[in-house]
């Protein structure tokens, strides 16, 4: 077994070289490079965690914004409904008023026209009496040669017309 057979002549060399080379490994690799690699890893982990947190925050904000938008939208809709119903009521009210006004105007017109018709009819009747009296007077004068009194003629006509 060379490990034991050669121990006397090689132990110093073995100890010297392994201390030297392991020391190099420890200081260059262990102290020099490993912390940097670990830093890189922890930096990445932190960045991932930060990104996740930012994403969660953004989602929360979006939710809140949507919520507020929804309440605003609901309020707007209610307000619009109110305006529409108000406008509807006002429109129907004004329509009713206009209708009433038109009705009354029409009634007045109709009444006026009826009155005019009545006077016209009365006028016409009077004229007929007058004409009939004159005609009767004329006829009587021609046939009988009698001069009839105007008033008597009229009374006779009236009697004949109204029977």
């Amino acid at each position: 077994m060379p490990q034991i057979a050669q121990l006397g002549e090689t132990y110093a060399s073995q100890i010297f070289w392994i201390l030297l080379i392991f020391g190099f490994v420890f200081f260059v690799v262990g102290r020099g490079m490993v912390p940097k690699v670990l830093d890189t890893v922890s930096l990445r982990d932190r960045q991932i965690a930060d990104d996740l947190a930012a994403a969660a925050k953004a989602r929360e904000q979006a939710d809140a914004e949507e919520e507020s938008w929804r309440t605003r939208e609901n309020a707007n809709r209610a307000q619009a409904q109110e305006i529409i119903s108000g406008a509807k009521a006002a429109a129907s009210r004004s329509t009713e008023a206009q209708l009433a006004e038109a009705n009354s105007r029409l009634d007045a017109l109709v009444g006026e026209a009826e009155a005019r018709i009545d006077t016209a009819r009365a006028g016409a009747l009077g004229e007929i009496e007058q004409v009939a009296a004159e005609a009767a007077d004329d006829i009587v004068q021609r046939l009988a040669g009698v001069k009839v009194d105007q008033a008597a003629a009229q009374a006779a006509v009236k009697e004949a017309l109204n029977g």
């Binding site: 002549e9 090689t10 110093a12 060399s13 073995q14 010297f16 070289w17 392994i18 080379i21 392991f22 190099f24 490994v25 260059v28 690799v29 490079m33 490993v34 940097k36 690699v37 890189t40």
Partner: peptide, 28 residues
Amino acid sequence: HIPFTNSALWMIIAAVGLLIFMIGGMKR
């Protein structure tokens, strides 16, 4: 008596191999 032996040579080879391995991971 500290001659540079084949044992020391392979210690250096292991150290250099490790160094190369680590350098490949230092791009950060």
